[in-house]
């Protein structure tokens, strides 16, 4: 990997591979669940095409099938996705002032949790930021999400029922990806931030809900950083 030249679209696609492998079975499961709950394959695909946010899409299924009013459902799903406002500034802070963002309006559509994590990990490992790289990263993940949804929607319920081991292994793909991404950006100074985020996530998830737990973990970890638990040094304290 060259540290001098900007990363390419193809390098972005390669970096998207673990995300694509993790996304596919989840999107497949979403497609199966959506058609199982009465949505047409086109409606299931439309949710993935337009919203493109996994947890919100599963919640959307529950809201749609429960007959929730449109505005209530929209407000709930928008609130669930508000965590994404943190990713752009955090990424730009890591990239620095040299970042060219002429086409961010397009690639930022694909700045999901996993794409954000993978971008941060790639930068931490010496990858040079570029918009083509971000396009490749986002496109690989998005294509997998759409393909998984489409196949799941057309396969229908119980498609993986005869393959429980495969289903279990694919189900661990995303936690494995998050852990590998965490290891790739890990620094000794930020261990307290990570520990505080983890404890807050578990506590609030058990006490309130999974969505509240995710928001609480992110905010608690970031506030811990403000309080000085995670010094913003780069490259000096890798574990």
């Amino acid at each position: 990997m060259s540290e001098a030249s900007p990363s390419t679209f193809v390098q972005g696609l390669v970096s998207a591979l673990p995300i694509a492998l993790g996304y596919f079975p989840i999107a497949f499961a979403f497609g199966v669940a959506a058609t199982g709950q009465g949505l047409s394959p086109l409606e299931a695909f439309g949710l993935s095409l337009i919203i493109y946010a996994g947890a919100a899409q599963f919640l959307a299924l529950a809201l749609i099938t429960s007959g929730a009013p449109l505005l209530v459902a929209a407000f709930t799903l928008v609130a669930m996705n508000i965590r994404h406002v943190l990713y752009g500034p955090a990424l730009m802070k890591r990239v620095g002032p040299q970042a060219r963002l002429r086409h961010a309006w397009a690639w930022a559509f694909g700045l999901t949790d996993e794409v954000f994590g993978a971008a941060l990990g790639a930068l931490a490992r010496g990858r040079v930021f570029s918009e083509p790289f971000m396009f490749g990263l986002a496109a690989g993940a998005y294509a997998s999400w759409l393909a998984g949804t489409a196949l799941g929607a057309f396969a229908g319920g119980g498609a993986l029922a005869g393959w429980p081991v495969l289903e279990a292994a694919l189900g661990f793909m995303l936690p494995a990806l998050f852990l590998a991404l965490l290891l790739s950006i890990l620094s000794r100074a930020q261990l307290p931030v990570i520990a505080i985020a983890a404890v807050a996530t578990v506590t609030v998830t058990l006490a309130v809900s999974g969505t509240a737990g995710i928001l609480a973990g992110m905010i608690a970890g970031a506030v811990a950083g403000v309080l000085g638990f995670g010094a913003p040094r780069r490259g000096k304290d890798a574990v």
Binding site: P89, D113, G117, V193, V202, M218, G221, A222, A224
Partner: peptide, 26 residues
């Protein structure tokens, strides 16, 4: 500054949170 520290901590905090949240149901 506090905002710099906030943004620097956001990445590790977010990824740690998502790992815990995705592993917890298991």
């Amino acid at each position: 500054g506090p905002l710099s520290r906030f943004l620097s901590a956001t990445g590790p905090a977010a990824i740690a949170t998502l790992f815990v949240a995705s592993a917890l149901p298991m």
